[in-house]
Design a protein around this nucleic acid. Structure first.
Lengths: 227, 227
DNA sequence: CGGGGTCTTGAATATCGTCAATCGGCGTGG
DNA sequence: CCACGCCGATTGACGATATTCAAGACCCCG
């Protein structure tokens, strides 16, 4: 399953940061005094690249973001989809171990990593919050790994349920990402994703309004698939 | 791929904790004043179970530990193997989201979760360390997910290289875990693991001294597989 | 030596991947 | 306003990789 990714090179440095900045009162963490600047990224624009210095931490304000790694032969693994409210880009090391791109037009709060860490040193609330976000991400990652041992049908079901929950519109999902993105997240091919969705639709577990607008007709059936 | 797991019920409560305790100066984190008690678990003994209250944090002193989750139909996913020096059992929530068992006879340092967190509140070094352990675990989990999209040969190669590094005996690994454990970690069946190892052996990439004692004859070949 | 668990090997099958063609929605421009 | 073209999604036929089911070998411990 080899998927070569077109790279839209819209990386940002200091200059870009200053360019797209909006004054903001939005906080990285709730109730915690770490401010930042907001930036908007176009569809498929790179937010950061694997190996780049991890000087900033991000929070999705609107739109959606994919984090991914690419193997030497072009296979791409999407490790997470980040939706509004999600914090991302926090790394254990000095460098980003994955890349991040806007899936659609996305606005993101950008905070200097050092600001967060300094704040954590003197304020245990910030430290606690920082830890709990990382721990939650760990849990998500473990759930993701759990997905990857399941059958195609189960993966799709779990994906739809997850998206439905996170997008918080009960019984309906408007997917921001392409079939290819879904495939790379679930460790499947685009064809298998498409076929499996068609199957679920034929069994009237789901219903398509459009290819990315899906009604969950039978959520309990999806849950059963979610072994 | 259904693997029902025999459960050796050797869970521990307060009583067990007090029973197996050894006085110890060993620290949970390096250079950080959070002590604890050590306990020894027999092969296949449960250290904690999914859903149990996560009151303790652990560090492997000797032996090895598997952390895993079981799906309703019996499929088991091993999320991590913990070797001496590894901290495990830290959870974002109140409950353990996975189970942990000793793979072989294992001695483990046990520290009250509350002690660690209280210490983190007043000591930013502890807080930093706590975060960095969690973040490192996140990175490991992401690497694990990356494994699961590869071919069987690539997964086995990556696994052997990882174990070789972590066991720190260059060019040779003595595996503590069974083929079934490896299979459940790599998202393969025991037969595929066995066959793939045989293949690597036939291509003289590796050499068996015994089924769990393996010489890495050609590490660069393994690295190439590690796409 | 014997027995139980672990591991290996074999043959048949199933699921998912690959390759290829077509469909369909959408924006653009004539 | 309709036609064209493009990109994303679907569908089909075929093939490969890993699973399943089954049998037997190996090995350690008693």
């Amino acid at each position: 399953m080899i998927t070569r990714t077109r790279l839209t090179n819209v990386s940002h440095g200091q200059a870009a940061l200053n360019a797209g900045v909006l004054a903001t009162q939005v906080q990285l963490f709730d109730n915690v005094p770490v401010g930042g600047a907001s930036m908007t990224f176009e569809r498929n624009a790179e937010i950061y690249g694997e190996g780049e210095s991890a000087d900033y931490v991000y929070k999705v304000l609107s739109g959606s973001v994919r984090a991914y790694r690419v193997l030497s032969d072009g296979r791409r693994q999407i490790s997470a989809f980040h939706l509004p409210g999600d914090v991302f880009g926090i790394e254990p090391g000095k460098e980003h171990s994955s890349s991040a791109e806007a899936i659609d037009k996305a606005t993101v709060l950008v905070v200097r990593r050092s600001a967060v860490f300094n704040s954590a040193d003197s304020n245990s609330d910030v430290a606690r919050h920082l830890w709990s976000i990382t721990a939650a991400e760990l849990k998500r990652s473990q759930n993701h790994a759990l997905l990857l041992i399941k059958t195609a049908k189960e993966r799709i079901a779990a994906f739809l349920l997850d998206m439905s929950e996170r997008l918080a519109v009960k019984g309906f999902v408007e997917l921001p990402m392409s079939r290819q993105d879904i495939a790379d997240y679930l460790g499947l091919t685009i064809e298998t994703v498409s076929r499996t969705l068609t199957l679920l639709s034929e069994g009237s577990t789901i219903q398509f309004l459009a290819s990315r607008r899906i009604v969950l007709r039978n959520a309990s059936q999806l849950n059963e698939l979610n072994a």
